[in-house]
Design a protein around this nucleic acid. Sequence first.
DNA 1: CACACGATGCGCT
DNA 2: GCGCATCGTGTGG
Length: 187
Amino acid sequence: MPARLSRATFGRPTLAVARRLLGCVLWHRTGDVWLRGRIVEVEAYLGNGDLASHAANGKRTPRNGIMFGPAGFAYVYFSYGMHHCFNVVTESDGQAGAVLIRGLDGIERAAGPGLTCRALNLSLRDNGRDLVTDSDLWIATGRPRRHERVVQATRIGIRKSVDLPYRFYILDSPGVSRRDRTAESRL
DNA sequence: CACACGATGCGCT
DNA sequence: GCGCATCGTGTGG
């Protein structure tokens, strides 16, 4: 059984955590069935200064409050009236930050944040769960394989801070929602 | 209380 | 590439 990612690991700067999550495995138990997928695409969302973030203006609201809390907790929100997006809270307590899980491969394959939640049966019920201590929801340590390259690119589906290169993905994984040929050409 | 708007995905052109 | 479903959230009146 691989080790679980620790509070200290989640508590590092958001961009570092985002990159670190690639190759790690997200586990979720529903009933007596374990669902799991290898994380292959992520996006970082910061606090003040990142206008695309739910914590952009530095103000806590009922929805985004968990982004300001201690690292290692799940931040799940409902989007477009039909999809869920699953994030992991980062940074030290009081500092907002989260990493959006956008794609999985391996046992459960999913390209895109909404499909990722569908594949692992993640929903608003999971909002606020502690990935460090929860027996049914956690992340196993992992790394990209030796031959795999990591691409850093701009984020998907946002209207603000569009040029910030806060998306990371594993080149050639089927779980990547959208490739960025320009970023790939820089490798 | 009203309303504008998504950190999306899918089907059609 | 484009339109659209569908509804919680945040903001402003």
